[in-house]
């Protein structure tokens, strides 16, 4: 009796320790990221980092301005979302509402495979196919632009958006759809006026998570956006090269002397990235919880 109790307790505590580990790891990441990031502000005023318009980390008068990188990430991510949200929702509606079960079962694995393709492969594809295409289509000196990055990131965010939206749309109770059809609504009116609005919270969460994926993506953007740390103009800047926060860290971390201002500046950029993605995930979670469907 005693030994059985003892075993139960042991298993329980081991499992608890394992799940607690994720929290500890997250906490440690925060700690190291912020500790090194905050050290930057001993030498560089916080305001000049946050509102600085120039990122010249290696010149004699080094400047660590976050804005070009932050706006670079923003424009690429915004473009990706503009591109992938309509496409993703349309696919999700098709898979869950319009396609026959056979077609849906055929399509779903492809969406999942799309999620499993390594980002360097996406980058390679972008570099070989999309970059020349953009250059020729818009008659640009280089095809490595924010737009190119947006399209690639949009494709990469698609699986997240499709699968989560599809879940949300399929979980709308059939009774609602029947209620709409029984009033003489067509299938399309039902989808557009009842089913999708009812699934809107799940769809918003899907968009947020897709956005989180796009903002954090590194390898692909680095390969196709040209990595020029200049504040992008609006809206023409979408056809200029940009540099994202992620690409900056990946490009510069290898060559930076440990403990230098540049080193700490990269950590500060990383902290900003961490905070942004953390907030997005938090928001997605809150949306999902708050509006979880109450009928059935």
């Amino acid at each position: 009796m005693f030994s059985r109790n003892y075993r139960e307790k042991t298993i329980e505590s081991v499992l608890f320790a394992v799940s607690a580990l994720t929290v500890v790891i997250l906490f440690l990441i925060c700690l190291f990221l912020f500790r090194d990031g905050l050290t930057l502000f001993e030498d560089v005023p916080f305001l000049s980092f946050v509102t600085g318009k120039f990122w010249y980390p290696t010149s004699v008068n080094a400047q660590f301005g976050l804005l070009p990188l932050f706006l670079g990430s923003l424009i690429v991510t915004a473009g990706a979302i503009l591109f992938s949200v309509p496409l993703g929702i349309a696919s999700a509606v098709f898979i869950s509402e319009l396609a026959s079960p056979k077609v849906a079962d055929f399509l779903k694995p492809f969406v999942e495979i799309l999620a499993g393709v390594p980002s360097v492969v996406y980058g390679f594809f972008g570099l070989v196919v999309l970059v020349p295409f953009i250059r020729e289509t818009f008659n640009l000196p280089t095809g490595q632009t924010a737009l190119t990055g947006s399209i690639m990131l949009g494709v990469m965010a698609l699986p997240t958006i499709i699968s989560i939206s599809e879940d949300a749309i399929s979980s709308v109770p059939g009774s609602l759809k029947q209620g709409s059809l029984a009033l003489g609504a067509t299938r399309w009116q039902t989808i557009y006026k009842v089913t999708v609005p009812a699934a809107l919270s799940g769809i918003s969460a899907a968009v947020m998570l897709g956005m989180g994926r796009a903002i954090g993506e590194t390898m692909t953007v680095m390969m196709v956006t040209g990595n020029t740390a200049i504040i992008p103009s609006f809206p023409g800047g979408i056809l200029d090269p940009v540099r994202t926060m992620t690409a900056t860290i990946a490009l510069e971390m290898g060559e930076v002397p440990q403990g230098s201002d540049h080193f700490h500046a990269l950590f500060a950029v990383g902290s900003v990235l961490f905070i942004v993605t953390f907030l997005i995930n938090l928001l997605a979670d809150a949306i999902k919880k708050k509006y979880r469907f109450k009928v059935d």
Binding site: S175, L176, Q178, G179, A182, L183, G184, A198
Partner: peptide, 26 residues
């Protein structure tokens, strides 16, 4: 046909919108 022949279901199934919009839907 369904305009001519309405249907009320076993469980109340109002749409997730306002009372007014529920009635105005049809």
């Amino acid at each position: 046909l369904r305009k001519q022949v309405g249907m009320v279901f076993q469980k109340p199934n109002p749409f997730p919108m306002s009372i007014y919009d529920n009635i105005a839907y049809g």
